[in-house]
Amino acid sequence: MTPTNKSNEIVHDALLQATELATQWTFDVKQNAFGWLRLNNTESLRPAAKALAENGARLCTMTAYVEERGENSNKKAIAYHFALANTVVTVTVPLYTAGCDTPVAVPSITSWFRNADWNEREFHEMFGIDIVDHPNPKRLFLDERLDAGIMSSLIPFSAMVHGAATRNLWEQVMAAKGVDITGSDGSYGLENPHGAPTDISTPPIEEPTFTPVSATAPENGN
């Protein structure tokens, strides 16, 4: 039996026992295993963490995120990433319930994983997610002048924050050349039209796209 299978099975059985949920597995080209488990609620996090800790897993990190893109979405979740030999298990905990998007607090797992401390403080300050029983609830990186939860308030972003600085600089670059672009709606480099589905299959050698202007059509002199 290869080590891959062994650590897979250990994790699988431990999590099955603790949460009554089966882990889904994917493999990369080198046959490293990636396990994916989605818990039903934050209650199951403690037993899952306990089971992983008892089987020698190491906490890699945790990722808090907003599940859907969109101005009004507030469906937050946390993915806990654990490592055991060549296996990475991601346990996802949704922080919302049916009909209620307001994120619920999550229990701290610092009693099983010492290095959860910083991770939990980070998602608290970046996403405004509350933690139950955190031993050291202070800001980690984010300056006090910025609001807690800045990531979740920025993810449903508009170009507002972002475009202004770039636009301003480009206006000066073009002004130095004698071109006034203050009224133009051209793109300024870093503004990605958010959410626009783009086919990224490259290389794009097929046919460059143009916006051909017909020479015969009357010029629209707006």
């Binding site: 300056d143 910025l146 800045i150 924050v161 972002h162 600085a165 600089l169």
Partner: peptide
């Protein structure tokens, strides 16, 4: 000089 690749980040005060 310009903020470079970080321009527009929530904690960037530059250029």
């Amino acid at each position: 000089i310009s903020g470079g690749v970080f321009r527009g980040g929530h904690s960037i005060e530059g250029p």
